[in-house]
Amino acid sequence: MARIIKYVFYDLLRTRFLLFYTLFLFVSTFALFQLDSDPNKVILSLMNIVLMVMPLISVVFATIHFYNSYEFIELMLAQPINRKVVFLSEYAGVALSLTSGFLIGVGVPILFYGAGHSAVMLLLVGTLLTIVFVSLAFLSSVLTRDKAKAIGIALLFWFYFSLIYDGLLLWIIYSFSDYPLEKVTLALVSLNPVDLGRIMMLLTLDVSALMGYTGAFYREFFGSYIGLLFSVGVLMLWIVIPTVLSVSIFSRKDL
């Protein structure tokens, strides 16, 4: 398995996309730190990148990559290797390379400028979200044979989680504003990895006091270790469930 991951990784390096991605993150992070003296504001700007741009890049890139290496996968499967192993290696290769790209691109400037608690949270959220969206990309890839269709599905995932879902959530909050919604919204937020990541970030950035009673409830919940474990756990589920699903589809699939 390790050897296949290695080949996938080399293959990714050869496309040079990964290098550009890392460089893009590196340069933009550095530029943000240069432009703004306040590290908290930089983290806020980076948060927008982490929550919007990175999932989009991850999901599209992983899908395209899967179809580009279709022949490689077929070749591998001609060998006496378990399908699951091939699929998981492919998955791990992409996830690892995107994550390391992110950690180097954003992490190094952050280390250089030495930001605190919120920066660590940013790196954690960014890493988890990258892997979540790689999982979703692989799921959309095994759902269909058509590359364009798969990219469509992947984009739909992204669109749904960053826009449509929030719209629905806003609608629910607005129309049921007379009811105590704290626990309900907590459950609803858990159903969206992007929202969950955003709230984890927001609470470290101390906007929580503005959120009134809801904010106090969230701060108490997410501020504790149990809350942190919960949110990381839920994000893990967001990684594991799509992956397990796609593995089972892939192993039964007629290639």
Partner: peptide
């Protein structure tokens, strides 16, 4: 919106709110 429904602060800094 937040003035009317404080709970909506939950969506602060999301892409939707930005749009």
């Amino acid at each position: 919106v937040v003035e009317r429904v404080p709970g909506a602060m939950l969506l602060w800094r999301s892409f939707l709110v930005f749009l």
